[in-house]
């Protein structure tokens, strides 16, 4: 049990740290909401090495922590919208489709952006935001693919240790 707590704590801290690293990258694209999603590397690693429940908890705690620390409440709301939708889709894709970790991560990236966009549409009550959709779709695909490839490498190496620890 204590080992489990230690592993979850460590992974959450790692995800939190990667959120911070992400804020250091001076990404300012023409379209808001485009980012690499480094923290998702930890979430997807947890999804593949541990189980759905722990990956979900790590993802939510990470969003809460980084939202309160690095951004505003309104941004946290969008992160939550994106984070929950993306997690659901990744978990479903992993269990019910034959996509590999890269494919699952790509779906996660795309649905994360979609979730954020839909949250924004609900908040400002305007469909004109869908103008961002094509760019966010492409960006989510590319970022998801990069994180997925990286996640494949990390998972391969960490799985024995993580599964032994839990």
């Amino acid at each position: 049990m204590s080992k489990k707590v230690a592993v979850y704590g460590m992974l959450t801290a790692l995800a939190f740290l990667l959120s911070y690293v992400e804020t250091l990258i001076p990404f300012s694209f023409a379209i808001p909401g485009i980012k690499l999603g480094l923290a998702n590397l930890v979430v997807i690693t947890a999804l593949y090495c541990l189980d759905i429940k722990s990956a979900f908890v790590i993802s939510m705690v990470r969003i809460l922590l980084s939202g309160l620390t690095f951004s505003s409440l309104s941004i946290m709301l969008y992160s939550l919208g994106g984070g929950i939708l993306s997690f659901l889709c990744m978990a479903l894709a992993k269990h019910f489709t034959s996509f590999g970790i890269t494919g699952v991560s790509v779906l996660g990236g795309v649905t994360h952006n979609l979730g954020q966009l839909l949250t924004a549409v609900l908040v400002v009550h305007t469909g004109s935001l869908m103008y961002y959709f094509p760019a966010l779709l492409a960006a989510g695909t590319v970022a998801g693919a990069l994180i997925g490839l990286l996640g494949g490498l990390v998972t391969e190496r960490l799985r024995p240790f993580l599964q032994q620890a839990v």
Partner: peptide, 14 residues
């Protein structure tokens, strides 16, 4: 990366 993943990426970009 599985072949299926590659196809997914191409389809989404298209």
């Amino acid at each position: 990366m599985k072949k299926k993943d590659g196809i997914l990426i191409l389809v989404l970009l298209a």
